[in-house]
Each structure stands twice: as structure tokens, then as C-alpha cells.
Design a protein around this nucleic acid. Structure first.
Length: 642
RNA sequence: GCCGGCUUAGCUCAGUGGUAGAGCAGCGGUUUUGUAAACCGUUGGUCGGGGGUUCAAGUCCCUCAGCCGGCACCA
């Protein structure tokens, strides 16, 4: 005699086992229609699930995030059904829910074309409209294996075989189509009202590049058409923020095929790049860092000693010189910094030694990995290596963590997540050393008061690391900063210091970066701000424009004065209408547009407008430059305009 | 690296195996202009590179490169 407790605390008693669907119907016809699944004692189940004992139950509708997941999962099944109808030779594999949608992988003799996709989507719509009932049944594992083998679905059979034999397998059916699935699913295909297939791509079977490649079809699905439209609109907006597009529009940089993955910085892009470096230089100087510069090219022998050639060699550029020596172009700065540390005898009194470098490193990334400025083969790191004693690990990690988080706030990034990456499979050093390094970094995290998410097996080959992940204006996450505890490389490369008892000791080295890659951070900023960089970073902070030739001298003198105050300002004296000039500089995302006509010249004022179209009225040059100064100094922590 | 798509003027993009185009930009003029595009004229192309099929290739085939979307990699 089950008693069902609903989320509002009310109870419903039944004198016989009931389904979720029946309970929903008992509450109201509307709820029954809206029901996609149930949550029984916290576990998601189908609406056909039979309740035979006392439980708590919530009816899951499209308003519940879990409801949306059920919709997406069921849409993946709908996709598979449509594909099997249109391409009976295709074999099904897996079809999980992902962010904003789903995908389904098929094994098929040829790749699906965009035309195939359109046909599949049309068939999916027909199947949804037919409102087929979705049914669930269970089958012993071995029987299920045989069942799918009988259907010729060898991938599906392989998946089931890897499930423990004592677990029953659930099968879901709709119309003629049956698939292995954990569920739950919507009660009928008519619940699937808003979906779209988005792209087709290759994907390896079981995610392993040694396996054959399957055809993956991606799609998105939502509770209704309006949500779908909103999602598609969001995609368009994200595309407008693409740093590759903005980089071209604003003439910041370019890439070309003779130098894949290496950036040609144009004057405006380089101006921003230099502003970033200058800022970081000041912050690091204040935090006790010393800037150094190490060679880009060093004998391969050194990289062999460090372990890089063995563990990172696939990613390294090598160059054979006429004198028959083999050199490696640095993929990391650490070995160079250790050479600087080693030069001369170090006392324990010198520690911590904090060596920083805006080092350009080269890594041979697989061609398919390259992506604008986000993934390049030549990039600049705001890298530093801190040499300390083992006792200083906690204190120094705490200081570094605070510095990182404070710097992110200057860029307006408040939402920062931290991950802890422990030992990878491909590593140097004894496990005992790794134990100590991981423990030390954990202790430091605790001392700094940070909560981290574990990221297993993702540490560097020489040590564990903390990874700092930023969330941008449109909710995307970017891993930027890192702090790594290294108990391996200093020893391998023979770094020492003399302790208080005159004994030779090996220092601990912290690797840390805050931007990570300057190129990538630049791209993140461009996308975060949609190209409208804050004043302190904008390559051109203001344009002073004339209305007719009569104001040319005035405009020139205003520009000159602002330039003398070290602002980045340009004149626009072209023979064009002011509307034309406003439009151009607005599109160029110049923060402030200053107009001088006869009236302004007569009153010795400037008419000020922001790139967002806000009219700030007229003001004196002094008022404007004060505004510019204040805004630049506040960096990303607040903005006066837009 | 793997799967698929793409590569035409500085940019954005049309182009049925049969004479390479448009808009913007640029350049030359006219216009002296008040807050998101004045008007007229005009230059500009090894159709990504190489090879092939064909009387004829931007278009079809092969190959290489780069880019784009995924996968794998990286972080």
C-alpha cells in the first residue's frame, strides 16, 4: 500500500502499486500531460515506473533541468531511429546528452553529408509528430548481447558485454526501434518539439585514436521553439565575439600559411599585448619578482637532462646547425631559469628567488589542434619560477594564489574556479617524491582557503598543479593560471643552495603563470569584451575629429596634448561627414569619440561621446583627460562609460 | 594526426565545363559637412600550390598546404 510524498509535503495513499503517470494524473490532467519523468527518492525514472512501496516523488517537467536532459536524451534516440530508417546499414553506438544538446555516434560506410542531415532531421520531425509511445523493458545481459548481435549491432553488443553480467539491461523502444539505454526517456516522442541537428563530425570509437572513426551527429534540443531560437541566437552572438573575426575587423593581428600557429602582430594588437606585459611587469615587481631572459635555443643535451626531450619531445622543434650540433627551441622556460639560478652559489638566505620571464616558447602542436590565438605553436608566457626550501612551499603558494586572484580582478574576472591536477601517467620522479609534492600543494591550498575540484592525472610531467579557470561574460570557462610544485627538475638539472648548516641542498621550484599564454589571454579578453577593450587596454583610447577643415588646428592641438599625457589618441581630420567618422570609430570600438566643431572651438571645449553611443555632452580637455586617467587607473574593476 | 567541409579582388561574398563578377575598401574628382555610411568616376585577380581529364577547367579528378567544425592531443 504505497504512500507517495510529494515535494510540497503532501501525501497520497494508494491501495495498489501505481505508476508515476497515474500519480501525475491524480494531481491534474495538465501535470500528467507535462510529465516527462519522475524523481523517486531522488532517482530519475520513467513516467511508466511502478511505485510499490512508500516513496517521495517529484514529477519532472520541462521546467526542471533534469526534464530538459530527458528531452535531449530522447531526442538522441529519435535521431538514431531516423538514421536507422534512412540508412539501415548504419550501426548505432552511443548517444549521450551534452551541454545544450546531444550527439549520437554511428558506424557507417561513408560520412553523412549536410543533405543527409537535412533528411534525417525531417524524418525526426515526422517521428515526433507521430507521437510514438516509448516503452521500457528489461532483459538479462547475455540475452541482450545476443539480441543486439542478432540485429547486427556489434558496437551495441560490445557495450553491453562490458556491463557486469548480474545487472539487468534496460531496453527502450519506440515504434520499430529498440535501443539499449539506462533511461529515463520521455513517455512519447510527441514531447520532442524543438530540436535541430547542428553538425556532423568524425569521432573515434570509445574515444581512442587507435580505434576506427565513427560518424558523430550533433544536435541541440529544447523544451520549446522559443528556447531553441534563443539558443541559436546565442550562438550567433558568440560568433560575433570570435577573436579571429574581431582581430581582423580591428586590424590587431593575422596568421598566414607560411607560419601556421604563429602570430603576426599588427601595431594595434601589439599595443594591447604590450599593455598586458607592462601591467604584469609592474605587479610582479611589486611582488618581489626579478625579470630575466633565457635563450630560445639551447643544446638538445640540456633538454635530455631535464627530461623534456623524452616526455615532451613530440611537441618540440629541433634544429640542426651547420656545426653539426642539435639544438632545441624552448617549449618551456624552466630549464633556462634553473641555469640562471645555478649561476653562482646560492645561500638559503637568498630564498625565495623569484625569476620571471615573458618568454616566447614554441611547441609543435598537432595541425588539427591549432585554433586562432587560442592554440598556437609559438606563444608568450608570463612565466615565473620560484626557488624555495621545502618549508616555504605553503607560504609561497598562498602568496602566488592571492596575487593571481587579485590580478584577475583587475580584468573584471571575479568568477574563478580552481582545479587540482595530480600525477600523470607520463612523469619523471619517484612516487614518494610525488606524494610529498601533492601533499604540500594540498596543504598550501588549504592555507590559502581555496576549494578545488580534483582533476586526476592531469599534472605536469614534473609535478602536481593548481589550475585557475576564469568564467567569461558569456559563461564560458578558460583555464589560464597555474601553480605547480616541482620536486624533480631542480635536482635533475643540478640546482643547489647552501643551508644554514653549510650543507648542499636541492631547492623546490614553483612554476607559475597567471595569463598562461599571452596570446590566448588576449583572445579571451577580446571575446569577453566583444572587442570593446577597457580604456587601459584599448589600442586607441580616443579619436578627436573635426567637422570641417576650420577645426583642424584645434583638433591637432587637443590630440597633441593628450598624447603628451601618454594617452593613445588619434586625430581624424578627413574630409568626411562627422556621422561617417563616428560610425567608423564606433565600429573600431574606440572608447571615446571627441568632436570639435566651430562651437567647441569657440568655447574651448570638446563634445564627448562613448562607443556605446552615450552622449556625455561637452567638457574641457582637462575634465576629459582626468576622466581618462581615472578610468585607466581603475582598470577592469569599474568602468565609467558603457 | 584522424573525419568532413572550405580556399575566387585588401574585406565580405556571387559565379550552370564555354569572355571572372558585386558591395565595401583603395585611388581620382566634386562636396566643407554637427554625432552609426554624401555623390560621380575608376584601378584591382596567377580563382590556395602542383598535376591530370577535356577542343575548353574557378567549375570535374588526383595530390599538397592552409583554414573552419568536431575527434584525438594539449591545458
Amino acid at each position: 500500500m504505497p504512500v507517495v510524498t510529494l515535494p510540497d509535503g503532501s501525501e497520497r495513499r494508494f491501495d495498489h502499486p501505481v505508476t508515476v503517470d497515474e500519480v501525475a494524473a491524480g494531481i491534474g490532467a495538465g501535470l500528467r500531460k507535462a510529465a516527462l519523468a519522475g524523481r523517486v527518492d531522488g532517482k530519475l525514472v520513467d513516467t511508466s515506473y511502478v511505485i510499490d512501496h512508500d516513496v517521495s516523488l517529484a514529477i519532472v517537467t520541462e521546467k526542471d533541468p533534469a526534464g530538459l536532459e530527458v528531452i535531449r536524451h530522447s531526442t538522441a534516440h529519435l535521431l538514431a531511429q531516423a538514421v536507422k530508417q534512412l540508412f539501415p546499414e548504419a550501426q548505432v553506438t552511443i548517444g549521450p546528452v551534452i551541454e545544450d544538446g546531444f550527439y549520437y555516434d554511428f558506424a557507417y560506410e561513408r560520412p553523412f553529408t549536410p543533405e543527409d542531415l537535412a533528411a534525417i532531421e525531417a524524418r525526426m520531425s515526422e517521428l515526433a509528430q507521430a507521437d510514438q509511445k516509448v516503452t521500457r523493458r528489461e532483459m538479462p545481459r547475455d540475452e541482450a548481447v545476443a539480441f543486439f548481435k542478432g540485429l547486427g549491432e556489434r558496437y551495441k553488443a560490445e557495450i553491453i558485454q562490458s556491463i557486469p553480467s548480474n545487472e539487468p539491461i534496460s531496453l527502450y523502444g519506440q515504434g520499430e526501434w529498440v535501443d539499449l539505454c539506462r533511461g529515463p526517456h520521455v513517455p512519447s516522442t510527441g514531447k520532442l518539439k524543438a530540436f535541430k541537428l547542428t553538425k556532423v563530425a568524425g569521432a573515434y570509437w570509445r574515444g581512442d585514436s587507435r580505434n576506427e572513426m565513427l560518424q558523430r551527429i550533433y544536435g541541440t534540443a529544447w523544451a520549446d521553439k522559443k528556447q531553441l531560437e534563443e539558443y541559436l541566437h546565442r550562438l550567433e552572438e558568440a560568433e560575433k565575439r570570435d577573436h579571429r573575426r574581431i582581430g581582423k575587423e580591428l586590424d590587431l593581428f593575422h596568421l598566414q600559411e607560411e607560419a601556421p600557429g604563429a602570430v603576426f602582430w599588427h601595431p594595434k594588437g601589439w599595443s594591447v599585448f604590450q599593455s598586458l606585459i607592462q601591467y604584469m611587469r609592474e605587479r610582479q615587481q611589486a611582488a618581489g619578482y626579478q625579470e630575466v631572459n633565457a635563450p630560445e635555443l639551447m643544446d638538445a643535451a640540456l633538454w635530455k637532462q631535464s627530461g623534456h626531450l623524452e616526455k615532451f619531445g613530440e611537441n618540440m622543434f629541433l634544429t640542426q646547425t651547420p656545426d653539426e650540433r642539435l639544438y632545441a627551441i624552448k617549449p618551456m622556460n624552466c630549464p633556462g631559469h634553473i641555469q640562471i639560478f645555478k649561476h653562482g652559489l646560492r645561500s638559503y638566505r637568498d630564498l625565495p628567488v623569484r625569476l620571471s620571464e615573458f618568454g616566447k616558447v614554441h611547441r609543435y602542436e598537432p595541425s588539427g589542434a591549432l585554433h586562432g590565438l587560442m592554440r598556437v605553436r609559438a606563444f608568450t608566457q608570463d612565466d615565473a619560477h620560484i626557488f624555495i626550501t621545502e618549508e616555504q612551499i605553503t607560504e609561497e603558494c598562498v602568496a602566488v594564489t592571492r596575487l593571481i586572484l587579485d590580478i584577475y580582478r583587475d580584468f573584471g574576472f571575479e568568477d574563478v574556479r580552481i582545479k587540482f591536477a595530480d600525477r600523470p601517467a607520463k612523469r619523471v620522479g619517484a612516487d614518494e617524491v610525488w606524494d610529498r609534492a601533492e601533499e604540500a600543494l594540498k596543504a598550501a591550498s588549504k592555507a590559502a582557503g581555496i576549494d578545488y575540484i580534483l582533476n586526476p592525472g592531469e599534472g605536469a610531467f614534473y609535478g602536481p598543479k593548481l589550475e585557475f579557470v576564469l568564467r567569461d561574460a558569456i559563461g564560458r570557462d578558460w583555464q589560464c593560471g597555474t601553480v605547480q610544485v616541482d620536486l624533480n627538475l631542480p635536482g635533475r638539472l643540478g640546482a643547489h643552495y647552501i643551508d644554514e648548516k653549510s650543507a648542499k641542498r636541492t631547492p623546490v621550484m614553483l612554476h607559475r603563470a597567471i595569463f598562461g599564454s599571452l596570446e590566448r589571454f588576449f583572445a579571451i579578453l577580446l571575446e569577453h569584451h566583444a572587442g570593446r577593450l577597457p580604456v587601459w587596454l584599448a589600442p586607441v583610447q580616443a579619436v578627436v575629429m573635426s567637422i570641417t577643415d576650420r577645426q583642424a588646428d584645434y583638433v591637432r592641438s587637443v590630440t597633441e596634448s593628450l598624447k603628451n599625457q601618454h594617452f593613445r589618441v588619434e586625430s581624424d581630420l578627413r574630409n568626411e561627414k562627422v556621422g561617417f567618422k563616428i560610425r567608423e570609430h564606433t565600429l573600431q570600438r574606440v572608447p571615446y569619440l571627441l568632436v570639435a566643431g566651430d562651437k567647441e572651438v569657440a568655447a574651448n571645449l570638446l563634445s564627448v561621446r562613448t562607443r556605446s553611443g552615450k552622449d556625455l555632452g561637452t567638457m574641457t580637455l582637462e575634465t576629459f583627460s582626468e576622466r581618462l586617467r581615472l578610468e585607466s587607473e581603475s582598470r577592469g574593476r569599474r568602468t565609467l562609460e558603457d
